[in-house]
Amino acid sequence: MTIRRSMLFIPGNNPGMLQNGGVFCADAVILDLEDAVAPLEKDAARLLVAAALASVDYGGSEKVVRINPLDTAMAADDIRAIVPCGPDALLLPKVQGAKDVEAAAALVAAAERPGQKPVKLMALIETPRGLAEAYAVAAADERLTALAFGAEDYTAGLGAIRTKEGTEILAARSLLVNAAAAAGVDAIDTPFTDTNDEEGLTRDTTLAKQLGFRGKLCINPRQVDAVHAVFDPSAAEIGWAERVVRAIRRAEEQGSGVVAVDGKMVDAPIVSRAERILQLAALLGLREEAGR
């Protein structure tokens, strides 16, 4: 299981931020060649990000590079320059369908050095068409490991009014989570754009967790801790999960079929949810016992 509670964008044309990207302890850093970089600086940013991948220690953060859109000539150049430098994954913007992922996968395969750890792909779903194709995208290639949602472009494409509460994107979020789950990949939520509103960020992230997202894109390092606080299993959740797992073990030992915890029946999906919580808690060091 790869933990992706927070995926932090780092502008690919900012040497200071590229150098310091690892200090914020985000689960992933996304070194950005797309929106953060002006057209005239694309070449320079590509070189800078390649050098950063080769020389900067990003600690425990997964190294992801957002390349330029696949319908531009820059995408192929990005892939050729970046893939040999060993990122963990590429984030593909404005993915419209399975073909985009397949095309990117072919370019990545051609660019990989012999023996290199395979570079994964993540698809940013940020158009109505992309959302309609979300499951096909998620299932398009074995390199594909996550779907991420970009609500700003998506709502612009709809002609919807963007609000802080996000009623207009509720259906899209749920569709995306479902597509990701169906294909067995992670769903990552859209960034919260008001970087000064910490309470709003926590509310929005709590909703994302409730809907089934595994993490959230972050556009400012200040957002990382708040996002982690939401996605970290709470003590209550861990306690519940421990009770479920204990109860099911006891039931297995006693050959009993039906188990209840806290007065509610426990069946297979509940057990798997509890196990996931305990696994996450162990990986995050929140629960010593499960780490054994």
Partner: peptide, 9 residues
């Protein structure tokens, strides 16, 4: 500055 904020935190 995010780095200074991290230090301060």
């Amino acid at each position: 500055d995010p780095v200074q904020l991290k230090i301060a935190d």
